[in-house]
Design a protein around this nucleic acid. Structure first.
Length: 247
DNA sequence: GCATTAACAGCCG
DNA sequence: CGGCTGTTAATGC
């Protein structure tokens, strides 16, 4: 197992600050306080940003790179929940409750990670309307993601698993830093989805044929996010269109 | 059958 | 050159 992030934390550069989406929602006084408290660190591939059970010290976000949210079950097997592309912030639930981290966050490649100290996080919750709105949006979107994950667990079709995973990573609310082009290798995506790289490659070619994405070198361009979220491949009953409208 | 591992050539930065 | 991609062959469930 790789070592913890023994990063030297430093103040963020202007460019790094521009990749922190919630800063623009703050009033000047709040903004100053946040910027003064923010720290960034460089994570090498394999470094842990935080681990299950450690007390929460920071609210973390991805400035650049790619992170993985996972947990270890009793067998010692690692279960991956989701990737965290640039612009993603996480752990606000545990930060609010001042509890311990419930996930491991690990860098899939060299990344820049930002941290907002817990005390500043709470000060912003107590004082900033814009910050509250951001956190509330974040929680709301995560709930939707969680519900979608329940369906996802039952998907056996690899193409669909890749499609749903990509759709989650392209979520503009949770990961506003991604935009149209997600920088991710097919190997990294394979780790997140839990498939082989070759099978992921095949799935992406299918999704490209459906005009949902365009495969590029070292990344994926989104063409139809809604299509990725709702794509169904049901070979058993092709023309079944009535079962959706039960409600 | 279908996915995985292994291996390789070609391409990109 | 090192890493990523697309493809094929062999192997396993």
């Amino acid at each position: 197992m790789k070592s913890d992030l023994h990063q030297r934390r430093r103040p963020p550069t202007d460019e790094e600050l521009s990749n922190i989406p919630w800063l623009t929602l703050l009033m000047p006084k709040e903004h100053d306080r946040a910027v003064n408290a923010l720290r960034v660190g460089d994570a090498e591939k394999g470094d842990f940003v935080c681990r299950v059970g450690r007390p929460v010290t920071y609210w973390f976000g991805n400035v650049s790179g790619l992170l993985k949210m996972s947990t270890d079950n009793i067998d010692g097997q690692t279960m991956t929940f989701t990737g965290v592309p640039p612009g993603g912030w996480f752990g606000e639930g545990t930060a609010l409750k001042r509890e311990a981290y419930r996930y491991n966050i690990q860098a899939l490649r060299a990344s820049v990670v930002a941290g907002l100290p817990l005390e500043t996080f709470h000060w912003l919750i107590d004082n900033s309307l814009g910050f509250n709105r951001f956190v509330m949006n974040q929680l709301n979107e995560r709930l939707a993601q969680f519900i979608a994950a329940r369906e996802f667990d039952r998907l056996s079709n690899p193409d669909l698993r890749v499609a749903r995973n990509l759709a989650a990573l392209f979520n503009p609310v949770l990961f506003p830093g991604v935009g149209d082009l997600l920088r991710i290798t097919q190997q990294e995506l394979a780790y997140l989805v839990g498939l082989s790289r070759q099978r992921v490659n095949e799935a992406m070619i299918h999704l490209q044929e459906e005009a949902l994405i365009r495969v590029e070198y070292g990344g994926v361009r989104i063409l139809n996010l809604h299509g990725l979220r709702t794509l169904m491949i049901d070979r058993r009953n092709k023309d079944n269109s009535s079962k959706e409208n039960v409600l």
